[in-house]
């Protein structure tokens, strides 16, 4: 599977790439933001992997570090953000020690991003097709006409009619703009596409269309996808595995089919309970009392302990170890501390 998908690449692997290494391996990632009163530990010891052709969903409350985790991969952090530990290995190449200039080789050509609000993420004074052609021209050193041709093919692929080719962002509808954004993410035939809440700003019908499109492109192009979302149903439909984050840490990670049917971490259970199910009684909708902790001075033990109904004395003192189960799920919770 791995070799087959890598064989589809139109562009050579980076020189230092190890063909036998996993596509992406993130180990103990620590991304912090400097504020006046200290470092905000937005991402604090997150590890996960991504295989060729796989779709991973990143879920959790706002501010739990999903987007920071994803943006850390190609280091697109605000100026006060810093990766203070861990590694991000792509084809076995650690991207963390790379300079910005060196990292440019990997941005968009290997890891591209579909941003949330395509209205703001697209330059308002540049034609959409030119924005799509830009990385082809400047990163893959194609001629301007070849780049524009590629842009037009991509726009056709995501279902934008050819008469809209000359359009500026404001001339397209929200769904069209998101399609264009997806076309742009595919421009350099990247190994990984990150979707940062790609459907959040869209209405339900358009959301569904965009998700179908993403799913189809992933199959056809053998893309690997990291999908950041609040919407658990999106993860259930599109992803192979899901990573549940809480307060900058991994709470639970595993195959979607397992995690969603048998959630182990109390936070995952609450999160699934807090999500409305159209087929169930609306009275069953739950909320999670309290709010996420202050990440400048996070709790010493489990970060979810203050809100957890099943908290034990050990939870507030010691961070829970990550426990792996046979069905491919790993959980960081003292409830499973000694088993497995």
């Amino acid at each position: 599977m791995t070799a087959e998908i890598r064989g589809r690449r139109q562009w050579p692997l980076p020189k230092q790439a190890d063909p036998s290494a996993p596509l992406l391996k993130v180990e103990n990632l620590q991304t912090h933001f400097q504020l006046g009163r200290g470092w905000v530990k937005a991402v604090d010891g997150v590890s996960f992997g991504l295989d060729d052709g796989e779709a991973l969903g990143l879920v959790g409350e706002s501010g739990c570090g999903k987007t920071t985790t994803a943006l850390s991969l190609v280091r697109l952090l605000p100026s006060n953000g810093k990766i203070r530990g861990g590694s991000v290995e792509l084809f076995g190449i650690d991207l963390v020690p790379k300079t910005d200039r060196q990292l440019d080789r990997y941005r968009w050509r290997e890891i591209s991003i579909v941003f949330q609000g395509a209205m703001n993420a697209l330059n308002p004074v540049v034609q959409v097709r030119r924005q799509i052609a830009e990385p082809v021209q400047y990163r893959l050193n194609q001629s301007e006409s070849a780049s524009l041709k590629r842009a037009d093919e991509l726009l056709d692929m995501v279902g934008i009619p050819s008469r809209r080719l000359g359009a500026y962002p404001h001339e397209l509808s929200g769904g069209m703009r998101q399609r264009a954004m997806i076309a742009m993410a595919l421009a350099c035939d990247p190994a990984i596409v990150i979707g940062d809440e790609p459907t959040t700003a869209l209405d339900a019908m358009v959301q569904a269309q965009i998700l179908v499109l993403l799913e189809q492109l992933r199959r056809d192009l053998g893309l690997s996808l990291i999908l950041i979302t609040h919407d658990l149903s999106v993860v259930a439909e599109t992803c192979d595995r899901v990573l549940v984050m809480y307060a900058g840490r991994v709470a639970e990670e595993g195959p979607v089919s397992r995690v969603f049917t048998e959630p182990r971490h109390p936070y995952t259970r609450k999160l699934l309970g807090a999500f409305p199910n159209i087929r169930s009684d609306r009275r069953t909708l739950e909320t999670i009392p309290g709010e996420p902790p202050d990440l400048v001075n996070p709790p010493a033990g489990c970060r979810f302990a203050p809100r957890c109904a099943q908290a034990m004395p050990v939870c507030s003192g010691t961070p829970p170890p990550e426990v792996s189960f046979d069905d491919g799920v790993r959980v960081a919770c003292h409830l499973f501390g000694t088993t497995a």
């Binding site: 990292l103 440019d104 941003f115 703001n120 993420a121 308002p124 400047y138």
Partner: peptide, 14 residues
Amino acid sequence: SEDYITTARAKGLR
């Protein structure tokens, strides 16, 4: 600080 500048950086442009 506009989002499209982040997009341009994400594209790995100089």
